[in-house]
């Protein structure tokens, strides 16, 4: 009993509750006439869509730069890559990789600029990151209107200027990662393998010298400084990594979803990703690959299961409201935990 209690304590009550809630959803599913197999496969598909976006938060958490509320910035870089790839008419695997290759230089530039801001505001990163993310979305809205894209599949069909709000990539690179694997419509092997590959790289990176330096900066900046680590440089590196991964993450998301969503779509993308990593057991200054995997699975599981189960149970779709409460409740819980630097004066 004591053991269970201490285990729950380390996990944190909200996580236990959410895990039990999800479990009860799966147990209830067959009774309300849902196919359990389909439910799990839906959860896996959404896991594949979102996992890399959640993973992208890790480097910045490690270096002590906080939860990356500026995730939309990286997403915008990914969107630029995606529309360039479509403009060039690349299809299939080439289209997918083309989008990533195009996106990365933008992600590096954006990430560098972003890090220069964040390095000047140590202690207030999260708040400023939120608004850097928001303003980047607004400025890119203008860009989508004025950039000279020509592809018929992307611009408005009758007059009007600029790109459409949603661009279908069905004829380009939808499902590019999964198509070569069997049962592509049930289990997204391609995305899971790709995520595993990136997560492995990340895990490996934190074993290298610069990875350890990043960890040190996050854990104890004064100690890191004393051992001769250039704090600003390490933070810059972590921010660029996060931004790049966010760009890759959104491209993976799109190739699974089948649409590129421009304009205001990236606005609130940071919040579900942050909620997911926190549900997985991360805190404002600590996160692991396992946190990412568990968190994404739990969060996406709840998003998939609650609408269908609750809908069948009480004939009301409360999923959107529950999503708001769960994801923001989780972020709120993490922000109000003790620990993390106190900067209040």
């Amino acid at each position: 009993m004591e053991k269970i209690k201490s285990y729950i304590e380390t996990m944190g009550w909200p996580r236990v509750i959410i895990a039990l809630f999800l479990l009860s959803m799966y147990i209830m599913a067959p009774f309300v006439g849902l196919n359990l197999g389909t439910s799990i496969s839906d959860t896996l598909i959404r896991f594949g869509m979102n996992a890399i976006l959640v993973l992208s938060l890790m480097p910045m958490i490690y270096s002590g730069t906080g939860l990356n509320f500026g995730l939309p910035l990286g997403v915008e870089a990914g969107l630029i890559g995606a529309v360039i790839s479509v403009e060039m008419g690349l299809t299939g695997v080439f289209g997918f990789w083309g989008a990533i290759v195009m996106a990365i230089p933008f992600a590096i530039i954006f990430g560098w600029g972003y890090s220069q801001i964040l390095n000047r505001v140590k202690g207030g990163e999260m708040m400023i990151a939120t608004y850097v993310g928001f303003s980047s979305v607004a400025i890119m809205c203008i860009m989508w209107l004025i950039l000279p894209f020509k592809s018929q599949d992307m611009i408005w069909a009758y007059g009007g200027s600029g790109l459409r709000t949603t661009i279908s990539i069905e004829n380009y690179w939808q499902g590019a990662l999964n198509k070569i694997f069997p049962m592509a419509d049930k289990i997204p092997f391609g995305e899971i393998i790709f995520f595993g590959f990136l997560a492995f790289l990340m895990w490996g990176f934190f074993k290298t010298k610069s990875g350890l330096a990043m960890k040190a900066v996050g854990a104890n900046p004064k100690f890191a400084l004393a051992t001769g680590v250039n704090i600003d440089k390490v933070r810059t590196k972590s921010v660029i990594m996060s931004t790049m991964l966010a760009a890759i993450g959104i491209i993976v998301y799109q190739q699974s979803f089948g649409f590129i969503q421009l304009y205001l779509a990236p606005f609130y993308m940071a919040f579900p990703a942050i909620a997911a990593i926190l549900i997985g057991g991360a805190s404002v200054n600590k996160a692991t690959v396992v946190n990412v995997m568990i968190g994404t699975f739990l969060f996406q599981g709840i998003l998939t299961m609650t609408p269908s189960v609750i809908n069948n149970l009480v004939k009301t779709d409360m999923s959107e409201t529950l999503r708001i409460i769960i994801s923001n409740g989780m972020i709120l819980y993490a922000l109000t935990r003790k620990g993390g630097k106190k900067n209040g004066k």
Partner: peptide
Amino acid sequence: NRAKGREMITSIIMGFFINGVYQL
């Protein structure tokens, strides 16, 4: 009070959270 030093970001998220309750 439990989020001293990061009141602003916490108050944003708090707004989102209570908005969910309000919707409910």
